[in-house]
């Protein structure tokens, strides 16, 4: 964890260090939300430009890591909200003729998962990503998303139940998972 002293003054060296120390978590957060590496890269850059612009506002009451994460989560939620307005992705049925033990089936379930995740409401999608992929505790998720720990848990429960419902609609079999 970085201390405040390490991010002030906003010189190139300390900024570069902040980027290098946090880029992996931030990029992987966005990579779960979008379809391509380039889109995730755009959002990562957008986040770090905001970090640079707001370095003077950084306060000592949180770690640099939490502060950057918070900016990233807000950037991600704004992106998801914009996408929800545009997208009309349908849920295709998964081809159950594929060998359920083979890599092809795993690819199909992964593809179904990505489609289903995109269909979730923005906050549910964000909570699922933060809890399942980023491994954050609900207490931290609540803090990052400006909500309570309990609200984050409720969002997670709804998200998982919604994913199950969409998997059923797509005809995904769980037997071999």
């Amino acid at each position: 964890m970085l201390k405040q002293e390490s991010v002030r003054p906003p010189d190139a060296e300390s900024f570069n260090r902040l980027v290098l120390e946090n880029q992996e978590k931030i990029f992987s957060l966005f990579r779960r939300m979008v379809s391509s590496h380039d889109e995730a890269d755009d959002l990562t850059q957008e986040t770090f430009i905001k970090v640079y612009k707001n370095l003077s506002k950084f306060r000592n009451d949180s770690s640099a890591y939490t502060w950057i994460y918070r900016i990233a989560v807000n950037t991600g939620l704004n992106y998801l909200r914009r996408q929800k307005v545009r997208q009309t992705i349908g849920l295709d049925t998964v081809d159950l003729a594929a060998d359920t033990a083979g890599p092809e089936y795993r690819e199909l379930t992964n593809s179904a998962l990505k489609k289903a995740l995109k269909k979730l409401p923005s906050k549910q999608q964000m909570v699922i990503i933060l809890r399942t992929y980023q491994g954050l505790a609900f207490k931290d998720i609540g803090r990052l998303m400006d909500t309570t720990e309990n609200a984050a848990k409720v969002n997670f429960s709804h998200a998982l139940k919604n994913l199950r419902k969409m998997f059923e609609e797509m005809g995904v079999s769980y037997e071999t998972v």
Partner: peptide, 27 residues
Amino acid sequence: LSAIMAIMKQDRISIPDSYGAELVVAL
């Protein structure tokens, strides 16, 4: 539900080793 959790955990993403350095240059 556990099966869905397992599907999610199996889904890995790869970040190129050079990404951090490239990001710093771009920024």
